[in-house]
């Protein structure tokens, strides 16, 4: 079985992580920050799956862990979007810089 080994997958994961960090630091909209967080989660996910495949392929707990990461991403998306929707309804913006305090 040829093809790329562990290191190329980890490199892709590192690139995804860097892009996600840049997005979290630079974006104005809270929704875009959540989406950048999803990219960071994807990087972690790719690392977990790549390590499972090339280091411990007989232990399926790693895949369950990866599925939990996907679930965490979905929960983050739902709860974060709920927060953003609430913020938008109250403040008229989803721009995080416009919100100095959470309580009215």
């Amino acid at each position: 079985m040829g093809g790329p080994g562990l290191v190329p997958y980890l490199v892709v994961g590192a690139l995804l992580f860097g892009i996600g960090v840049a997005g979290v630091l630079s974006q104005r909209s809270g929704v875009m920050i959540l989406m950048s967080l999803e990219i960071i989660l994807n990087a972690a996910l790719l690392n977990v799956v790549a390590f499972w495949r090339f280091v411990a392929p007989a232990n399926y707990d790693a895949q369950v862990f990866a599925i939990i990461i996907v679930t965490v991403g979905a929960v983050e998306m739902a709860a974060g979007l709920g927060l953003m929707l609430l913020l938008f309804r109250r403040r008229g913006t989803s721009n995080v810089d416009a919100v100095r305090e959470l309580k009215d």
């Binding site: 079985m1 562990l6 980890l10 860097g18 840049a22 630091l25 630079s26 495949r53 090339f54």
Partner: peptide, 28 residues
């Protein structure tokens, strides 16, 4: 932000390339 992101990605890649990973040959 781009500098921080690129720097963290490059640092991670450097760590990845310099580490000896305990890769096994067997597949699932």
């Amino acid at each position: 932000a781009g500098v921080v992101g690129a720097g963290s990605a490059l640092a991670l890649i450097g760590l990845i390339l310099t580490t000896r990973w305990p890769v096994v040959t067997a597949g699932p």
